[in-house]
């Protein structure tokens, strides 16, 4: 195995360890343990919809008036894991050195966290809008529409972020001739 391939394999091994730890934490964590991601998400949603969300032990962030709760199952941790995996797998071979590969991995973790906060807050705001203005799509129930909305928002955002990273890291636009 050549040295760059070995370094890529090491980086992907580190990615697997990080995402496994994250998934394991998420599968057992309650609302209190997930405050590192629920609290900033709730704050962003509060800012966007101008309605307060109150933390309730073992439940999450609740707004009684809107009849909406930001609970552990919609914390967005799976999206964060997917974003880390896509960034590491997609771009690790384009990084020339071990240092660059590890920088990519740790930057992916930080940026995936920030992206998750933004995308999840947008998803929740859209869900609140759909709750306030129910729509009927192909006979789907409101729960199915909520589920589908989550998939569309998360996957579209993932693709947009991936293509943006691809443009920055792999295919920068050629400079216009002067």
């Amino acid at each position: 195995m050549t040295r760059p391939r070995l370094y890529s394999a090491l980086t992907l091994g580190a990615m697997l360890a990080i995402t496994y730890a994250l998934k394991r934490h998420y599968s057992t964590a309650d609302a209190e343990a997930l405050r590192w991601i629920l609290a900033p998400t709730a704050w962003l949603v509060e800012t966007l919809v101008r309605a307060p969300f109150v933390f309730e032990q073992h439940v999450g962030y609740i707004n009684q008036e809107l009849r909406f709760a930001i609970v552990p199952s919609c914390a967005g941790v799976n999206f964060m894991i997917i974003a880390i995996c896509a960034a590491a797998v997609g771009f690790v071979t384009h990084m020339p050195t071990l240092r660059a590969k590890l920088t990519l991995l740790f930057a992916s973790v930080g940026l995936a966290y920030l992206a998750t906060l933004g995308v999840n807050a947008a998803r929740i705001v859209i869900a609140l809008l759909l709750q306030a203005h129910p729509v009927s799509i192909a006979g789907l129930s409101s729960a199915q529409i909520h589920h589908a909305e989550g998939i569309v928002v998360y996957f579209s955002s993932l693709c947009a972020l991936y293509l943006l990273a691809d443009r920055i890291l792999v295919r920068p636009r050629p400079k216009a001739p002067t």
């Binding site: 894991i81 997917i82 995996c85 896509a86 998360y154 993932l158 693709c159 991936y162 691809d166």
Partner: peptide, 14 residues
């Protein structure tokens, strides 16, 4: 082809 990795990551985790 450019979207295979995000698609595969998404399907793998979900």
């Amino acid at each position: 082809r450019r979207l295979v990795i995000p698609l595969a990551s998404y399907l793998a985790v979900t």
